[in-house]
Write a protein that binds this DNA or RNA. Structure first.
Lengths: 197, 197
DNA sequence: TACCATAACTAACATTTGTTACCAGTTAGT
DNA sequence: ACTAACTGGTAACAAATGTTAGTTATGGTA
């Protein structure tokens, strides 16, 4: 009973959240109404509340799911015993792959987190700051070991992270090159730009 | 009479549009109400309509102002007789400078153009597509002349343009490096990433 | 069969939204 | 001094918003 309830509940909830992710990406969080969402799910607006507790909760789930994913990935990368530039490459590749394969949720959580409200907003802001700082630290290590050009590390982080969010344009473009080729191109340019020749 | 009327009108209108640009950046277009805007201007919401004709018009003015600026800049750059990689550098530097000095309007027009409605929406979409294509063409010329690495030109454009939009983080960061140093760092990484060594 | 959680519906709510109509005070040119 | 434009305010609007209350059909479990 409990088992079925949970399974049914979560699949339905997941449908709603996935649909919301798509709408939030297309129109933005604020410009998406619960009635828009309901229509896409194929249900009345009020019925959504059998599965979620508020519009805000949807955004929270999306943002924290993505934040956790990136946080735990950088944990494993940072634990490896490889050159700093390889760590940066691994992080970058992960970002690219996530943007290619989990476009909606990654993009939304990156663009719409500002609409979170306060316990969650501060939390996400802190997580984002910490995350960028960890990448910056790796870059600085790479600079010390002369693997990476002498540049301002926060600027490098800013370029990296925003460049991958440009994969949105790739998704919407007509003649898409493959995800793998996209990845190699981005790595060539960005790692090539960081690396000490 | 007409002269004075126009001058007064436009300064007040400009104030409104500048204030709107700031709010649209902070909260997004949809999440900014005319009453929010009015409060920041120091006036009642209805009074705004003595100067502008709709909320949509504000976004239109912002988007087309910025689009025209970038379009006419690439015109002049493209007319010059310099290597392709130098053209790309000039375009990139212009983007960086605009993001540093005209943050609000540039950022807003880049992020919120999706909320335009249809005659304007199609127009802006076309302009953006054309603009990216022109940069891609310059890059392809650079690749043919072996000034630039053999990469997918649209991907390079995507990286360039989105990387500069990351200057938003720079604006909000506590310990800002100077705008000039930011520019040099970004050029180092991005042009370094494109250039054939 | 009786029961109960699930998940859908309809109706309604209090706010908030963009916008309009109308009015009043100030300013500037004749 | 008179007029007209400019710029503000108040009141109100219809529509849209997120959300709640209450009801009903369904399908699995005791």
């Amino acid at each position: 009973m409990a088992k079925i309830r949970q399974r049914k509940n979560s699949t339905r909830k997941e449908t709603i959240i996935e649909t919301a992710a798509r709408l939030f990406r297309e129109r933005g969080f604020s410009a998406t109404s619960m009635r828009d969402l309901a229509e896409q799910v194929g249900v009345e607006a009020a019925s959504l509340y059998n599965h979620i507790s508020s519009k805000a909760e949807i955004l929270q789930e999306l943002c924290f799911k993505v934040a956790n994913k990136f946080m735990s990935h950088i944990d494993t990368v940072d634990a490896e015993d490889i050159p700093a530039i390889k760590k940066i490459e691994a992080v970058l590749r992960f970002h690219i792959q996530q943007m290619v394969h989990h476009y909606e949720e990654v993009y939304v959580s990156d663009r719409e987190w500002k609409h979170l409200t306060d316990p969650y907003l501060s939390n996400i802001q802190t997580q984002r700051r910490v995350y960028r700082q960890r990448i910056a630290s790796i870059i600085e290590e790479g600079i010390r070991k002369a693997e990476i050009k002498k540049i301002d590390a926060p600027t490098a982080v800013l370029i990296m992270l925003h460049a991958v969010s440009g994969i949105e344009s790739w998704h919407r473009s007509k003649e898409k090159i493959s995800g793998e080729i996209l990845e190699e191109n981005m790595i060539t340019i960005l790692i090539g730009g960081l690396q000490n020749k």
